[in-house]
Design a protein around this nucleic acid. Structure first.
Length: 283
DNA sequence: TGCCCCCTGCAG
DNA sequence: CTGCAGGGGGCA
């Protein structure tokens, strides 16, 4: 579920809470969700947190705990206050652990971090920083869209390897750009005023340019709004993320376009819900 | 490059 | 009951 902006928000919130703490205990409730040896991170201090694409890392001394939340992953930290980040489900604000709880970390100050994942697509993985484990996980990923090295040219070149694909489908390919998911791919196409079905090979230079701008705008707005959710995305101070209230097309089918009033359409592209304004977005 | 699959739960 | 859900790996 979480895409780049949500993972970024989780990182920013969680790091204020756990950097400097020591991991005292790891309880693996669902073995399938945990790759590596829990013992390898016991008694280690959290040095920093970082994010690459949709993967979140808690870095310890020479070793890191990586998280991929996939569709329904959540991270809930309970300490002097409660931090909830990830997929909104009704039980996420209830008692913990719950039936979606897969892994529990306990820190030296008694606070706990719960990795919950209803559908069990997500994972927690221990990797040695120095080793190729990290590289092999990351080497296929495309550029970080909010970094300086993500240029128009890079995006264009990467996209052009998928000429026959619909733009929106190509944007979801993590080797093209990393971190975009279904919400922001839809929003990016809207920002760029390009029909999501348009084939990459038919894009003009101007359209590549506006797509580049659109991708970054959609992601930045997502972060600015504290991530997206339908229900309870909560930052460390307990504020909700309201991005979907601001989303211009995602989940807005049957509603009027905020720009022109045309009814937003929903179709399927490669099996994923695809939303667009047939008036604002050009074929 | 496209399809199926991994899972669970909710809305229609 | 069927279809759908913010992801992506493995397979032909």
């Amino acid at each position: 579920m979480p895409e780049l902006p949500e993972v970024e928000i989780i990182k920013l919130g969680l790091q204020r809470k756990i950097v400097g703490l020591k991991i005292k205990k790891i309880e693996v409730i669902t073995p399938k969700s945990f790759i590596g040896k829990p013992k390898d991170i016991e008694d280690k201090k959290v040095i920093k947190m970082w994010r690459r694409a949709k993967i979140l890392a808690i870095e310890l001394n020479g070793i890191a705990v990586l998280f991929h939340l996939k569709m329904t992953g959540q991270l809930v930290w309970v300490g002097d206050e409660k931090f909830i980040g990830g997929h909104p489900t009704p039980d996420m604000i209830g008692e913990l652990p719950n039936k979606s709880t897969r892994v529990i970390f306990t820190f030296n100050n008694g606070s706990k971090l719960y990795f919950n994942d209803q559908r069990r697509f997500g994972w927690v993985r221990i990797v040695n920083i120095e080793q190729s484990a990290v590289n092999s996980l990351f080497k296929k990923l495309g550029p970080e869209p909010l970094e300086k090295d993500f240029t128009r040219e890079i995006l264009k070149n990467k996209l052009l390897k998928h000429k026959s694909q619909a733009v929106k489908v190509a944007l979801l390919d993590q080797t093209v750009v990393s971190g975009l998911g279904n919400i922001y791919a839809n929003e990016a196409c809207f920002e760029a005023k390009i029909d999501p079905r348009k084939k990459v090979g038919e894009l003009s230079d101007n359209e590549f340019k506006s797509l580049h701008r659109g991708v970054r705008k959609a992601l930045r707005e997502g972060i600015a709004h504290g991530g997206s959710t339908r229900a309870h995305f909560v930052d460390p101070e307990g504020h909700k993320g309201y991005f979907l209230d601001y989303a211009k097309v995602y989940g807005k089918d049957k509603y009027p376009c905020k720009i022109c009033g045309e009814i937003i359409q929903k179709i399927q592209l490669k099996g994923r819900g695809t939303y667009f304004c047939s008036s604002c977005q050009k074929k």
